[in-house]
Every structure is written in C-alpha cells, then in structure tokens.
C-alpha cells in the first residue's frame, strides 16, 4: 500500500528564497577565502597510508634471496589474469637456494590488466608478492606496462620476513637429522 509522507511546509523565510540564497552564498564565500584542500599532484605527493594497495611487486627476503617459488597460485587466483609465470628449477649448485628447488624463470604482471585487488598478496604462501605504495604506473607502450621479473624486484625491494622458512629447512638439513 502506498505510503505518502507529507513534506514539511516551507516557512515564510524559506518561501521568500532570498534569505536561503544569501545563506548559501555565505557558505560558498567562506570556502572562497579558506585555504585549498586539493593537492597539486606531480609536485606534491600524498602520504601513502599503511596497508595501501598499490602496484603488486615481488620482494626478496632479508638475505637478498628470491622468495617466490613460482607456485603460480597468484596466477591462478588473479581475476583479470594479469599474472603470467614461467616456472623454473633452481639448479643444485646454488648453495643457499638449492633446497628451495623451484623459482620463477619469468614473472610478468600486466599492469594494463591488474585491478589492484590484492588477491595475489593474499594467496601467496611464501609472502613473496606485495601490493606496495607505488600508485602511479604509466607507460607509452603496452610492452612498457608489463612488469617483468627484474622490474618487479626493483619495485619491491626487500621486506622483513618473520618466517625464514627456507632458512629453517636449510638448518634442518645441516642439523643432519638425515639417516
């Protein structure tokens, strides 16, 4: 059943309209003399809040080693299919990485496709991919907008790691619980 709400009738002052306009003009004029709230972007940069989801990057562990093991879960979860990984094997002759066995041979994130949803960071079992505070990705060609592995590490840098999973594995191996 329709339900009508009567609008409150306007008062005389409101119906005269002019006082209301003057009140409105007072507001706009107040803003006219108050300082600007906008930021002049290229010169001034916003402070990036913690937890900001910027461009996805690859990070290294504090020992400067690649954390990504190319499990391709990010590639799988990525809704716009922006991530493309070519897995590769880490040869046995790399002493501090050999026990990791697997690492990405190529790792491309197409920033023209990326929607900054952060699912890749969420899903990463090795905490290797992070959406960091880089918010401005531009380029003149499509190829420029694809971040390859080198660029991803350059953007990502090193983040602190609380787990040192591979170090633990290495320690276990050296501890010699083996037969």
């Amino acid at each position: 059943m329709p339900y009508v709400i009567e609008r409150k009738p306007l008062t005389l002052l409101e119906r005269l309209y002019i006082p209301q306009i003057i009140a409105g003009m007072r507001v706009t004029l107040k803003h006219f003399v108050s300082p600007n709230v906008t930021m002049e972007y290229p010169e001034q940069r916003p402070a990036i809040p913690a937890g900001y989801r910027g461009v996805p990057t690859l990070v290294m562990d504090p020992n400067g080693r690649e954390k990504c093991v190319s499990c391709q879960l990010c590639e799988f979860v990525c809704p716009p299919k922006a991530i493309r990984i070519t897995p590769g094997e880490i040869p046995a002759d790399q002493p501090d990485r050999a026990h990791v066995e697997k690492g990405p041979k190529a790792f491309d994130i197409d920033m023209l496709r990326c929607i900054y949803c952060g699912l890749c960071q969420e899903v990463c079992p090795e905490e290797a991919i992070f959406l960091q505070n880089q918010y401005s990705m531009t380029g003149f060609t499509r190829a420029e907008m694809v971040n390859d592995k080198a660029r991803l590490y350059e953007l990502g840098g090193t983040l602190p790691d609380e787990h040192f999973k591979w170090d633990k594995k290495k320690a276990a191996a050296e501890h010699g619980n083996a037969h």
């Binding site: 706009t28 006219f32 003399v33 600007n36 906008t38 002049e40």
Partner: peptide, 13 residues
C-alpha cells in the same frame, strides 16, 4: 578561478 576557490582547489595554474 572563482569556482575553483569556492570548491577548495587552486584552479587553472
């Protein structure tokens, strides 16, 4: 310029 100031921005500059 006037509209920009009223909206709290610098306007064309």
């Amino acid at each position: 310029k006037v509209s920009a100031k009223m909206q709290g921005r610098p306007g064309p500059n």
